[in-house]
Structure formats: C-alpha cells, structure tokens
Design a protein around this nucleic acid. Structure first.
Lengths: 207, 207
DNA sequence: GGAAAATAAGAGCCATCGCTCACATTCTAT
DNA sequence: ATAGAATGTGAGCGATGGCTCTTATTTTCC
C-alpha cells in the first residue's frame, strides 16, 4: 500500500506562522461558542472568524470535535491552575481555614470565564471524545483527598474517599450554580455569604 | 387573506388512533435518545422507529425540539411525583427524619430512568425552548423552603431561601453524580452510606 | 537563486437534516 | 352509503455542514 502523504499530516505545527493559525482557530472557536452558541460553531464559520481558510483548519485539527476539545482543555487548564494553587497553599492549614480558602478558589475559578464555562456545561454534548470532563473532576477529588489525609486528626470520618466525594461535589455544585445561574448572588456581600455558608456546610460535615 | 387549513392544524389529537401516534413518537424519541444518542435523533429516524411517517410527525409536533421537550416533560413529571410525594409525607416530621426521607426520594427519582436522565443532562443543548430545565428545580426549592419554614424552630438559620438553595443544590448534585457517574455507589450498602452522609451533611448544616 | 517542504486558500462534493406537500387511507356522522 | 373531516404517507426540496482536493503562496535551506 502506498502512503497518503497528502491527507495525513493533519497534526503538528512547527513554524511560527502555523502556531498563530492554530491559536487563532482555538480562540475563534471559543468566541463563537460564547457569542453565538454551539450549533453556530461550524467549521466554515470558525475558519471565517479566525481569518483562515477551512483547508488550514483541517491541517491542524481532525474535525470540529477536536477544536471544541482544545477549547475545553485550555479552559480546564486555567481552572486547574487556580485550584491547584489553592490546594498547595492550604496544605498545612487547618481544615476550617483551608476549606474556606478552597471555596473561595472554586468561585474564583468559575469566574475566569463564566460565559464560556456555561456554554461548555450546557451546550456541548458530552459524547464520544468529549466525555472526559469527568477525568478533570477526578483530579480535584484526588488532590482534595490528599489534603484530607494530611488532616485526618481533625476529621471524624474514616472513609476519606467518600468524604472527598461529598465535599467536592457539593462545593462544585454550589459555586457552579451560584456563579452561572444566580446573578443575584454575585455582589461582594452575597458572595461572602455564599463562602460562609458553603464553608460551614463542609466543615460541619467533616468535623 | 385565505386560510391555510392544510399546514396549520399541527396540534391536537382527538381520535384514538392519533393519540397512539403521538405516544409512539414520544416513546420512539426517548428510545433513540437512550440507545443512540441525541444527534441520531433526527425527525426521519424518530418517525421510522415510531413506525410512522415524517408527515404524521409534523402533524402533531412543530419540530424536533418539541419532541425532545415532550420527553423531558414526561420524565420531569415522573420525577416530581416522587419528590412531591416525599415532601408531602415529611411535612410534619422533624428535620433529621425528613431530610433523610428526602434524600432517599432524590435517589429514587434519579433511578427511575437513569440512562434517559443522563442523556437529558449531558447531551441535550439547553438552548432556546429547552432552557426551562431550571424552572423545574425552582419548584423543588420552593417546596423545600416551605418545609423549612414549617420547621424554623429546629433550624439555626434566618435566610431560609439561602438554606433551601444550599441544601437543594447539594442533595441534587450528590444523588445525581452518585447514580449517574458512580456505579460503585449503587450497591444497597453503598447507597445506605450515601444517604447517611448526605443526611448528615445537610442536617448538620441546618442545625 | 532555486528546489523542496510547509503552509494557506477556498470552490465544491456529498451526506444529512428539517420540513413540506400532494396524495391516500380511515373514521365519523348522517 | 357517502360526504367530509381526520389522519397517515413518503418522495423529495432547499439548506447547511463537514470535509477534501487542487492550486497558490510562503518559508527553509543549500
């Protein structure tokens, strides 16, 4: 069988020009998702907004899904940076203070790009190659569990995996819902209240 | 202007035959969503699976969205029946017992048709006419808040709206995630543990 | 300077999808 | 029995979308 050098290289960029093209495509995808919604994000439109041709698009991405996946990946990296930083910071802090800081970080993370976060959560079908959204949550759980292990003397529970699941899921759900669906909870005062309540919920549960 | 009797009547069914058609269409939509996923649910395919022609489909539904909306509606009615029953039952029970019963009901509700629930949660773009998924949650919150108001003497908090938000969001997130993404938590034993923990989380927070 | 590799362009193929419409069949009521 | 309403049929139109392929331009390297 002969090779297919023409269609195959749909992969890496090496020159600077092409890296710019790749960036423009990802950025355009994100913009369209936010401004026009998922079903307007056709490959033709993405290329158009990126100021690039469809042909170029398919040089670097095997299809539409890959573009969306790249946007998700980028967004999750940003979020995880905030979360990891917070977890590192609280490693040696007592539970009450640590959880409080973590809740604040969760809100901060959701505020990085709420509109994009919302589209990703509500409009992207989690199917096929896009179902690894959970994998990202697993990392958070694992990290938080490690934190709990280092503070097991402050905690009444035995099953720290379960504890991490309960706390992690609650914190994520509360901050996610508040930031994305309750604009009435976004004043500084209301956010403070939310942090208070969530912290109380979690700390009360752990101790 | 002349009337357009041909295209207009796309609405109600009166004979029994047509009611069967409508049911078959909704049922077919649900089946396809579960077995093949959202993007396979084209109007042609739905009609085919329902054993009906596309033309008939458009006699009763203005479009694909309406079909999906009907499936969502039916599913939510089933869920709300369980939730409302539980809330009615606990109305005069103390918080600890009541919350426990409510958590069990939430799990029960998610178990009615987990596969469909998952598809609805993960694959249906919440856009346009389909964004009223939240309205359904609001009812639960309102009902739960009413319960809390009747037991305010057992509760430390002042802002019962906020309390209902925190508790409702947590219960929903925990039961949803456990049933749909943690098959390891579905043994009788694990479910019991989950109910215990969720109840403790919420009751500890309220009191 | 020039060949070859890398990158970009974009017209257009092909498949699919939502939906219509002209027509066929069945039901209801007189 | 039969008119007319209700219901059912399905080929196919128009639009759109994903993606390919040929051709053009730019960059690299000698």
């Amino acid at each position: 069988m002969a090779r297919k050098p023409l269609t195959k290289p749909r992969k890496h960029a090496s020159q600077e020009r092409s890296r710019a093209t790749v960036d423009a495509l990802i950025e355009a995808t994100a913009r369209i998702l936010v401004r026009e919604g998922f079903d307007k994000a056709s490959t033709n439109r993405i290329a158009e907004v990126a100021g690039v041709s469809v042909g170029s698009l398919y040089q670097y991405f095997p299809g539409k899904d890959a573009l969306v996946a790249a946007v998700i990946e980028r967004h999750h990296q940003e979020i995880m940076q905030v979360v990891r930083a917070a977890l590192a910071e609280i490693a040696s802090q007592p539970v009450k203070k640590g959880v409080r800081r973590l809740v604040a970080a969760a809100i901060e993370a959701h505020r990085i790009d709420p509109k994009l976060h919302r589209v990703l959560a509500e409009q992207i079908p989690r199917t096929g190659r896009l179902e690894n959204v959970e994998a990202f949550n697993r990392e958070t759980y694992a990290l938080f569990r490690t934190y709990l292990e280092g503070h097991s003397d402050e905690i009444r529970m035995v099953d720290l995996g379960l504890a991490a699941f309960v706390c992690g899921t609650s914190i994520e759900a509360l901050t996610h819902t508040a930031v994305l669906h309750r604009s009435d909870m976004l004043s500084d005062e209301a956010v403070g209240k939310l942090v208070d309540e969530t912290t109380r919920l979690v700390v009360g549960y752990l101790q």
